[in-house]
Design a protein around this nucleic acid. Structure first.
Lengths: 165, 165
DNA sequence: AGAAATAGTGGGTTGCCACCCACTATAGGG
DNA sequence: CCCTATAGTGGGTGGCAACCCACTATTTCT
């Protein structure tokens, strides 16, 4: 725990232009590192999406539709754990841009079934490329093997996170 | 990779109560995993701090002061890369609660030098414990050795993040 | 048929975060 | 002594994410 830094013999400002380094107490916390790097990753991706007028949810919805086929909106809500009202806004925007199509379910006319369009698929491919580019930036210091290890560890951590407790 | 999911032969809703699983397209992105797990970590820690009426910045400031000794406020600003105005609010709150002390620098009376109090150190110790508890929760599925690996990888990634480009 | 549940929507609220501007006090250079 | 720069402060703004409520349309139960 190195608790002897109460001694005031440490110069408060070692050098005038001394570079701002992060407190070891924080660097010691995986929680902190996870939070920081995660934020960097999300921030960068969000920024790239924003340039296209999109948000992270848009990508998530496209991915869900591409991976699992058409969903009733309520199923998207459950899968992605978003507020129904927010989901309505997302699909609305995506539909307006032509990336998804919405149609009343003929069997249960309360439901709206959402489908990706070809444009949506094409967009998703581009977004994935953006995401990989961000990954390249953020994980730059790691070798491919290390990235794989990181990915696997994170995957296990993620899988364990309480989705619906 | 696996680009044949355009085929509509995948049941849209495999089973009525089918559990909402995350789209593989997203799980495939380290960016996504990083973002998600990071958010979980930050969220949990933030929530614990909030119970004490604190925010993450408060902890960061305490850590910086404990690790590096007293700072002029401007040095805290540079080290932690916060807006000066926001830093003023943080130190103000911390001082009001007795966790830090502020004093005019006698040499340069524009500066306010900030110091942790014993109460502040004690608090920081508790906050670290909270952080470790969160870590325990979040990293539960990993063995100690794996946690170490994860920590090191994240540490390298973090160190590489552009601090001041 | 009527009552109760469900799907989607529109609208608005809150809290957080980062940022920006205006202002005061002090320092330092000419 | 004036002029500019710097340190800190107070107040306010805009974006975003997460919620929540009220309302309509439709289905399902009795």
């Amino acid at each position: 725990m190195a608790s002897d830094e109460s001694a005031p013999d440490v110069p408060a400002v070692p050098a005038p232009g001394a570079d701002a380094s992060t407190p070891p107490t924080l660097l010691d916390l995986s929680t902190y590192l996870l939070s920081r790097t995660g934020k960097a990753a999300r921030g960068r991706l969000a920024e790239r999406l924003a340039r296209r007028g999109l948000r992270l949810w848009d990508m998530a919805v496209l991915a869900a539709l591409a991976d699992f086929g058409p969903h009733a909106q309520r199923d998207l809500v459950r899968r992605l754990r978003v507020d129904p009202s927010d989901m309505a806004k997302v699909t609305d925007q995506l539909a307006a841009a032509g990336y998804v199509e919405r149609a009343r379910d003929t069997a249960d006319r309360r439901r709206v079934s959402v489908t990706v369009t070809d444009a949506g698929r094409a967009l998703l491919a581009e977004l994935r490329a953006e995401a990989y580019a961000v990954q390249e930036e953020v994980l730059a210091p790691l070798s491919p093997a290390e990235r794989q290890v990181l990915h696997d560890l994170l995957g296990r951590v993620h899988a364990h996170l309480p989705g619906a407790p």
